[in-house]
Design a protein around this nucleic acid. Structure first.
Length: 714
DNA sequence: CTTGCTACTCTTTTT
DNA sequence: GAGTAGCAAG
């Protein structure tokens, strides 16, 4: 024991050690990026377990992603070689709340088999509510309505407390009421319910509250700056008795205000726990001084922040490379080319490189470039695995078996594959269920419809019945196979097309997860699946560059980081331009991105970016202006002498932006769609180049050099 | 009820 | 440019 502790402390600096060994009572560790926050949190837990002999089951640790939780558990296991960490309550707020609620589900008006509705399901509930209330979807966008509802829940505002301030909110208030009723009729909770219902459970049930408060001797919270009000109140309740909260965070890295996160929770903590012990960590162990200086020069311009000076002993390191490319495709090509060079020169292994962007849509150009270069990559986000149609379909089958009240899932698959149960028939069933006040399952089995529909319904009801009977007899994996077979979904998906095979492969991946669940009850399995985030599945061992959004990059680090799309309107995002608070958040996002880099940082922008099928010009990000020239490598150009097409103001560049003729007759070229070809003629257009190419496969084509993405072959 | 066509929106960021 | 909602025809 003593040996483990000694070696643990050897790896910590004085300030970190002080935090780890803090006395019991409320503690807040404010720390800059790369200062070992998570390490301090893990060490604190090890310290509590080893030195303080705290039983593992009396510790709760909340992290931002399940991945972070798993990592922490692994580290503790390695450190202590003990399986006792398995008894710790560790996970995201959402997953921990789901576990708490499961036990006392009847107290909040659902049963133990309650479903957790994801973003997709939530939207479909909003749509149903809008339809029932005769509200026009075109005027009141379901997504916008839902975001207000979600925000209210995160601020702990129940439907009957919702105070509309605008006409729009007036409408939302009415939808909110109906929305929640529909959720409960489906025996379902949404993501936000997991938090707000747990707060209510603790508030209104003294015995439950006492049990929880008594049990958790220590509560530790990572990424505290990203907690919302509901989460903060949970912290207060859970730690209400023993008052041993240990929070770790960095206000400069708060990037989730848009979903209710409130960095003022730091102030609330100070108010609610006047004896709060605050520890600050500013030494950085991740990045070179150049990178830290760049990060500080960007974040410095935000108002109302505590000024901290980040320092490192890692030295200056290489300058930050700033480049301007002509299009987003060229930007992507630059990324791929540079990565290849870095790998060839041994500057970094492929897995130590990341490419970050503001919006998921930007990943497409990058993916194309990686595919063209035949270079493997990891993609985080975009179309998340669990959001794929086929995956959601199969899960919907499992969900109606676990929770026969789930009409949202039923609607999804009742006619997939086609069974002759169309919208109209389904609406009748739903109506019957509502009229009789019975769950949808019953009105399906006892339905008294006539003709073809009745036959189809009876057949489906028999299948469903059979699955439910098998629910508790078969393991999740076996049930999975059985349903896939008997429902006809398997044959429906495997339709012989290439796309069908791809979808089938995804279903098989899900099948692996199902078999991995072993004897776990179906409900537990579904809960777990509902709460995984994309980053949770990110495979460390795959040795390939990672493509991810700046948000997803939080908490990670890479030897080399590319941030692409440094353009006003993208980073900072156009929706933030007229709002100082949102602008400050964009700046923090940029700060988070920069500080992910250990050694090398590349900041790229494209002069022309295609979006919505058209290509538009863009101005450089204002954040680039904040970087001192001495930190930058501008590729031989001074800051004033940027490439020709961006010199001067935009109106001027619009007239004669680009390019000298790039393609000459006889040049061999490659086009993504048409393959290889030979240039016959090239004509300079106003701000483009028209190229006539003879393709081996598709014959003569006349193309725009900028839009076609035509490439030279050396 | 199913299939296939047209027209329209869409892009912040996520547990 | 792509995915989907909505509609018309089979």
């Amino acid at each position: 024991m003593a040996a483990e502790l000694a070696s643990l402390f050897d790896s910590l600096n004085l300030a970190q050690r002080k935090a780890v060994q803090a006395d019991d009572g409320p503690t807040l560790v404010i720390a800059g990026p790369g200062s070992g926050k998570t390490r301090v949190l893990t060490s604190r837990i090890a310290y509590l377990l080893l030195a303080r002999k705290t039983p593992a089951h009396r510790i709760m640790a909340v992290t931002f992603t399940n991945k972070a939780a798993n990592e922490m558990r692994e580290r503790l296991n390695r450190m202590m070689g003990a399986a006792q960490t398995g008894e710790m309550s560790i996970g995201t707020f959402h997953s921990i709340c789901a576990r708490l609620l499961r036990r006392d589900a009847p107290l909040i008006g659902v049963d133990h088999h309650f479903a957790i509705f994801d973003a997709d399901d939530q939207l479909s509930v909003v749509k149903t509510a809008l339809a029932e209330l005769n509200i026009d979807e075109k005027k009141y966008k379901p997504a916008a309505v839902h975001s207000v509802i979600s925000r209210a829940k995160n601020d702990l505002i129940w439907p009957d407390q919702f105070q509309p301030k605008t006409y729009f909110e007036e409408i939302v208030g009415r939808v909110y009421v109906r929305y929640n009723q529909i959720l409960r009729a489906n025996n379902a909770l949404d993501f936000d319910d997991l938090l707000i219902e747990t707060v209510r459970l603790l508030q209104h049930n003294p015995s439950v509250c006492q049990r929880v408060q008594e049990r958790y001797l220590h509560l530790l919270v990572d990424e505290f700056q990203d907690t919302n009000l509901a989460q903060y109140v949970l912290v207060k309740w859970i730690a209400g008795k023993h008052r041993n909260v240990f929070c770790v965070g960095d206000p400069d890295q708060s990037i989730y205000a848009w979903r209710g996160a409130d960095y003022r929770n730091v102030l609330r903590l100070q108010e609610d726990f006047p004896d709060l012990n605050v520890v600050a960590l500013d030494q950085n162990y991740r990045s070179t001084q150049t990178i830290l200086d760049a990060a500080m020069s960007v974040i410095r311009r935000n108002p109302n922040r505590r000024h901290i000076k980040l320092f490192t002993e890692r030295g200056q390191g290489p300058k930050i490379v700033v480049r301007e490319l002509y299009t987003d495709d060229e930007e992507a090509q630059y990324v791929v080319d540079t990565i290849r060079e870095l790998i060839d020169h041994g500057a970094a292994a492929p897995g130590e490189i990341a490419v970050m962007y503001r919006t998921n849509a930007q990943s497409r150009a990058l993916e194309d470039a990686f595919v063209r270069a035949g270079m493997p990559y990891r993609l985080v986000g975009a179309t998340r695995f669990y959001a794929r149609k086929e995956v959601k379909d199969v899960l919907a089958y499992l969900r109606i078996v676990n929770n026969p009240a789930d009409s949202v899932s039923l609607r999804r698959i009742v006619n997939v594959p086609p069974r002759g149960i169309g919208d109209k028939t389904f609406a009748q069933i739903e109506e019957a269920a509502r009229a009789n006040g019975t769950p949808i399952y019953q009105s399906l089995t006892t339905g008294q419809l006539a003709g073809r529909a009745a036959r189809a319904l009876a057949d489906f009801a028999a299948l469903w019945r059979n699955w439910i009977d098998l629910r508790d007899e078969l393991a999740v994996g076996q049930l999975f196979d059985h349903i896939l077979q008997t429902s006809g979904y398997r044959d429906y998906l495997k339709d012989g097309t290439e796309e069908g095979e791809e979808r089938w492969a995804n279903v098989m991946e899900l099948r692996n997860v199902a078999f991995g669940a072993g004897d776990m009850p179906l409900g537990d399995f579904l809960n777990e699946v509902a709460l995984v985030s994309d980053i949770d599945n990110y495979d460390e061992s795959a040795n390939a560059p990672t493509l991810l959004t700046l948000h997803a990059a939080k908490g990670l680090e890479f030897r080399v980081v590319f941030i692409v799309g440094l353009e006003d309107g993208l980073l900072p995002h156009s929706r933030s331009l007229d709002n100082p608070d949102q602008m400050a958040e964009e700046r923090r996002l940029m700060y988070v991105g920069i500080t992910r880099a250990k050694d090398r940082l590349y900041l790229l922008r494209a002069f022309r970016r295609s979006a919505w099928g058209t290509s538009d010009m863009s101005a450089p990000s204002r954040f680039l202006d904040d970087l001192p020239a001495e930190l930058l490598n501008l590729g031989g150009r001074s800051k004033e002498k940027q490439p020709s097409w961006s010199a001067g103001d935009l109106s001027q560049t619009a007239r004669s932006p680009r390019p000298p003729v790039e393609f000459t007759p006889g040049q061999r070229v490659y086009h993504q769609k048409f393959g290889e070809g030979i240039v016959l003629r090239s004509t300079r257009q106003r701000d483009d180049e028209e190229v006539e190419v003879f393709f081996a496969k598709s014959g003569l084509k006349r193309l725009s050099a900028t839009i076609s993405g035509l490439k030279k072959i050396e």
